[in-house]
Design a protein around this nucleic acid. Sequence first.
DNA 1: AGAATTCTGTACCGATCGGTACTGATCTGA
DNA 2: TCAGATCAGTACCGATCGGTACAGAATTCT
Lengths: 210, 210
Amino acid sequence: MPQRGRPRGFDADAALERAVEVFWRQGYEGASVSDLTAAMGINKPSLYAAYGGKEELFRKVVARYAEQDMGYARNAFAQPTAYQVVATLLRDNVLAVTRPDRPAGCLSIQGGTACSTQNAPVAGFLAASRLAGERALADRFASAVAEGDLPADADPAALARFVMIVTEGQSVHAAAGVTREALQQAAEIALAGFAAASGARLPEHATDTA
Amino acid sequence: MPQRGRPRGFDADAALERAVEVFWRQGYEGASVSDLTAAMGINKPSLYAAYGGKEELFRKVVARYAEQDMGYARNAFAQPTAYQVVATLLRDNVLAVTRPDRPAGCLSIQGGTACSTQNAPVAGFLAASRLAGERALADRFASAVAEGDLPADADPAALARFVMIVTEGQSVHAAAGVTREALQQAAEIALAGFAAASGARLPEHATDTA
DNA sequence: AGAATTCTGTACCGATCGGTACTGATCTGA
DNA sequence: TCAGATCAGTACCGATCGGTACAGAATTCT
């Protein structure tokens, strides 16, 4: 469909990317529309015309973030064993929440865990999306149990909850300024803990077929 | 010192307690002064006269919260072994962040992990206070190493970081509406993980002196 | 009784909030 | 060339933000 009327004078996708950083750094309520338009290099009416409003912009921002900055999670889910899924998830999450070219922490938490009553839907939306990820991880663990990769008495939902709790804590910690190296140490402890508590088969180097 | 002038018409401590709940539920920026005065049952000038302003009120709220709602942490630190310290801390933190008579989560995180630039000091203040707790826990673990309660090669700082990460994740999870029972399951996994990863001596029932 | 002091409540401050009306510029299709 | 459509930018909207001036009420000390 060819365009009709005056063409847009800015790159809507690039501007959305700028908005990601603002919401990430300042949270939903802490980011004013003026902050956003300044960072995006556009005027307010352009923001409303292109994205619909502050809340709609935020939801588009979260969607973009999930695509651009959460790819490591999809990669982790595709690992062949539950142990490797968790190892990849925890280690790559540390990298993701401590990227030097990005705000510290993750948008899902920095965006806002608590809001004014009128913005409560925003916090709820973020929380729901995190829990959806947890459900997906629990499903992955259930498959691992079915495959014999995890013991039959393992609790997929509880294990997924533990792992997601750790990733959330990693994000909060990173936002507090804790270094990547420090978080990596803690991630290895969490990973060892997962292995011990779940009874997951480890990727040992010479015990299986020898 | 006897009072001079008209006596205060409200209980400053009870009003502070109301403010705790508002900040806890809505975060620092999500709680307006009007929200606060409405919940506290006072007028705006009374708030400013009694507490100094919104930010000063928030700091007083955090101090009160630390005293009233974080007592479980002090109790946990006093446990005789590192394992029991962590067990108490993780289990009681689950109870604390899922109290039915309180907002979900903890004030330290719900108060705000991200803020507008002008309120950045508030988020920094909260983060610093969490990290201070982590340092205290690391000191406790260092003592455990010195006592032989933890192995000599245990890393107190890394272990403390792991435990605090879990408590922070528990808070985020609770704020998302996850039930106490679900968090308790995850806490036991974290505890087992801590034991395995740290090499802590467990409180076994018949292996020590038998 | 009266001065000094401290609190309460109303009414208000400038600034900023999210959001929009409107004019003029820029494009396509006829 | 001009109508129709879409965008950019200014200027503005009512509401709310955090914070305060000011007048009157309540108390203590002299």
